[in-house]
Design a binder for these strands. Sequence first.
DNA 1: CGTGAAACTGTTCACGA
DNA 2: TCGTGAACAGTTTCACG
Lengths: 161, 161
Amino acid sequence: MSISMSDSKKRMVDLDAIDRRLLIELTRDARTSLRRLAEEMNVSPATLHNRMTRMVQEGIIKSFVALLDYSKLGFALTGIIMAKVDGKHLVEFEKEIANADNVIAVYDVVGEYDVVIIAKFRSVEELDSFLKQLLKNPKIERTYTSIVLNVVKEDPRIRIF
Amino acid sequence: MSISMSDSKKRMVDLDAIDRRLLIELTRDARTSLRRLAEEMNVSPATLHNRMTRMVQEGIIKSFVALLDYSKLGFALTGIIMAKVDGKHLVEFEKEIANADNVIAVYDVVGEYDVVIIAKFRSVEELDSFLKQLLKNPKIERTYTSIVLNVVKEDPRIRIF
DNA sequence: CGTGAAACTGTTCACGA
DNA sequence: TCGTGAACAGTTTCACG
């Protein structure tokens, strides 16, 4: 029995100890074997399989992915780009930019700028042409770009429990 | 036969068509079966297994993870925090902050601020105490925080080939 | 890189708590 | 409703050529 909450945009979910443990393990290693995990947890593999399937359906687990070292793949440059966008076209603009190949994050923010974009490039030239493309867009009033000198941490995982 | 490059911090790697295809697929679905993939690609499962192991050893593949929807887990708040840090203590500070539970990214940047931190919280109170903790640190000269109103995109994957 | 075989794993389903 | 155990098909993994 647990309290259901509904005041955030996306509804929260009831997770028991098995779900939580499974989330932690899949977050640590998405290729882990449910069977071995099941033994450790003293439940049946079928149970873990059900839980996993359910959490994928509910959208709690968005996907299973390999995290790559982009600098080893030639993307040595990360840029943080902030843009002030004409309010009427903000959503439209965001959708556009979110689909760009280089972009790993797009955030709507409040303050001096409206959008923060994080993107990865192979070279200064690539970043430069990305920015020029942006500025061509008449919806954009101004941009500010921070060049990232060093990616200290970049990991989509946080401690959830 | 491919050209080897060595002018970036981390060395680049030679990848053939099999490696590249494998990376793309594992990035799409880390739990995909190498056997089925092998059939599609007309190579043996053992080959794909070898390639995968090699790329993990080389650090090209950093890890396999489940991506979660944090807003469904109660982390409705994302903050982008910029900090101006006393230069002598920058590296030390960054290591510290990178280990914090809520932090998904830490970037070294040039400009008005030295560090950009992206972190997720369950509530304004949590964000607030995170910021207060930061400001207690005498190494920090000033901070600027953007509250994220909407996460338009947040996906560690970019198009690599 | 491929083969082949052994070991392991995912997935399903009828049953029972 | 939900977990279980057993069964089978699918998969990984390894030594070797």
